[in-house]
């Protein structure tokens, strides 16, 4: 076998290996990009969920309930005094 042939075969092998390797990394890259896109979507979804949770948390009206509780406690004291006084 001559040198050129061997070189050509090696080149062909390299080309084949490069094609398969490139294809492999291409597919990997595409998959990674897809995953990245999915992760972004998930992150965005998480942000939205966090926002929703914060909104829901702020809509729980805990302050209003605290005020109501305070009012009811005062009312209870007055009622107890009134009961005792009867």
């Amino acid at each position: 076998m001559d040198k050129e042939k061997i070189i050509n075969i090696a080149l062909i092998v390299v080309i084949i290996a490069a094609i398969f390797g490139g294809r492999y990394y291409y597919s990997q890259s595409t998959e990674a990009n897809s995953s990245i896109e999915n992760v972004h979507k998930k992150i965005e979804q998480n942000h939205k969920e966090i926002s929703d949770l914060k909104s829901k948390t702020s809509n729980l009206n805990i302050r209003q309930l605290s005020v109501e509780k305070s009012r009811l406690e005062k009312q209870q004291e007055q009622l107890k005094k009134q009961l005792e006084s009867i």
Partner: peptide, 13 residues
């Protein structure tokens, strides 16, 4: 092309 794919994949990873 293979190298570029490799680096691209690396970046994606």
């Amino acid at each position: 092309w293979g190298g570029w794919m490799y680096f691209k994949n690396s970046d994606s990873e």
